[in-house]
Design a protein around this nucleic acid. Structure first.
Length: 200
DNA sequence: GTTTAGATCAACT
DNA sequence: GTTGATCTAAACG
């Protein structure tokens, strides 16, 4: 019997919330205020690449504040490893508002409206110039792609939107997506066509 | 065995 | 028209 058991959010969700309204600096001066993220909880999350442990996913089990990049549909997606060594949790950067280097971002993305430059994980990565070459980048090292030390959006967001992750097939109902309400750069929810929930 | 490159198609703008 | 923690297949060790 579930005694009013609202399952507590894993730590990675708190880290995901923390990343909102922080700035990620990409290549050639392009930078984005993070407005939408998703949490992936390693071995306890069927939707995570770390669910099966391989030489590749081992990187996610490594030290935090490193960049995990993967390809999908010919695009790249950027994740931040957030957990201490051994846990394999990471946060997908789903959207951001370009706050610097608009010209560079637009050169890579094409001539689109500002709020569309970093809308969606593939677009955000492209706007920032992130590719597989940036895999395992130290996000604390200002020489390359990195996270700004502190929030530059005027502080933490007033409220945070919460909902299920976009486009995942497995564990589709876990509300581990977080976004800044009112941000036009946040993408709409799209459920996977063959989405499957958890059995627990 | 694992990893990267490309593609498909429902949902979105 | 555009996008994407899916999917298949080719490349690699």
């Amino acid at each position: 019997m579930e005694a009013a058991g609202i399952s507590p959010e894993p730590l990675v969700c708190l880290r995901a919330r923390d990343l909102l309204h922080t700035v990620i600096v990409g290549h050639d001066g392009a930078a984005a205020l993070i407005t939408e993220v998703e949490a992936y909880n390693g071995p306890d999350d069927p939707a995570s690449h770390a669910y099966t442990r391989t030489p590749r996913s081992t990187m996610m089990y490594g030290p935090p504040d490193r960049l995990y990049v993967y390809r999908i549909h010919g695009h790249h997606c950027a994740n931040v490893v957030t957990s201490p060594e051994g846990e394999g949790a990471a946060v997908l950067l789903r959207a951001g508002r370009i706050v610097a280097g608009h010209a560079q971002a637009r050169a890579r993305r094409g001539d689109v409206a500002d709020h569309l430059l970093g809308r969606g994980p593939g677009n955000l990565a492209r706007a920032l110039g992130i590719t597989m070459a940036d895999l395992a980048t130290e996000l604390t090292d200002p020489r390359g792609v990195h996270l700004a030390g502190s929030r530059a959006g005027g502080g933490p967001p007033a409220g945070v939107g919460v909902g299920p992750r976009v486009g995942v097939r497995l564990a589709a109902d876990r509300p581990w997506r977080f976004w800044v309400p009112g941000e036009p750069s946040v993408s709409a929810y799209r459920r996977h066509r063959a989405a499957v929930g958890d059995d627990r």
